[in-house]
């Protein structure tokens, strides 16, 4: 009998082919209240983390940017302003519900013309080689089934000299902060999820998936292994979140 390959879904082990569907269910469930919950869960600090991501992206007018797992379009909106009418921003997400919320929100804010939305799997990006000047993936990589495959896919569609920025939850740098953060994630977060979105399980998955995600040095190593050079990371808010940057040679 052949053993089925498994991967983690939070703290559970699930067959590899099931993970994407389960993650999709989580995000279908939270899409409508994703922004409210983000603000509530992070106290609004997620906006500052994204702001620093924009700063480090070195995006310029006329450039082409891919915002993977762009969800409700926070980064896309800001990039759209920076690249201007001569540039282009592609908002990509594997989840149709998140993409729909993002597209509607961008249109409501009058952001159009230089923005495209694409439903795409980060592991198999549907773009030609050497297309983008910069790729961002904010709070998305930990939900991808095969992260190495996704990183290689991103490398392929980046232009030489292009930048990949991975904004993701990571490992707190102090033991005390880690304890406080654990209490918050496993007790308060599912409670808030239940209260605001009536969905404790999805928010419990979010907390578990954060713990299963590679720490700062491991992710940096994965980016180097995928072929990125000059890889570096910046810890934010004591390492609760880290921004990794790599360049396509």
């Amino acid at each position: 009998m052949t053993e089925r390959k498994t991967t983690h879904f939070g703290y559970q082990q699930v067959p590899v082919e099931e993970k994407a569907g389960r993650v999709a269910d989580v995000f279908h469930s939270v899409a409508a209240r994703y922004d409210v919950m983000n603000d509530l869960m992070s106290g609004g600090i997620h906006r500052l983390w994204k702001r620093f991501t924009i700063e480090l992206s070195a995006a310029r007018p006329g450039q082409t940017i891919l915002d993977i797992a762009g969800g409700t379009g926070d980064l896309t909106a800001r990039f759209s302003r920076i690249v201007g009418p001569t540039g282009k921003v592609v908002l990509a997400d594997i989840n149709a519900s998140m993409l729909k919320v993002g597209r509607d929100r961008l249109l409501d804010r009058g952001i159009a013309g230089n923005v495209e939305t694409v439903q795409a799997d980060a592991q198999y990006l549907p773009f030609p080689d050497n297309t983008f000047d910069c790729i961002t993936i904010a709070f998305g990589l930990r939900n991808v089934t095969d992260k190495d495959l996704a990183l290689r896919s991103m490398l392929r569609v980046l232009k030489p000299g292009g930048r990949l920025l991975v904004l993701e939850f990571s490992k707190p740098q102090s033991k005390l902060l880690e304890k406080v953060y654990d209490q918050y994630s496993f007790r308060l977060l599912p409670f808030m999820g239940k209260l605001v979105a009536d969905d404790a399980d999805s928010y419990r998955y979010l907390a578990e998936s954060i713990r299963m995600h590679p720490d700062q040095e491991t992710l940096k190593g994965m980016m180097s292994d995928a072929g990125f050079v000059d890889c570096e990371f910046h810890n934010m808010t004591g390492g609760i979140v880290a921004l990794h940057k790599g360049i396509k040679p």
Partner: peptide, 13 residues
């Protein structure tokens, strides 16, 4: 290096 969150907060404010 100081935490970039503070600098981002200063710029946003």
């Amino acid at each position: 290096m100081s935490d970039p969150t503070f600098r981002a907060g200063f710029d946003a404010t």
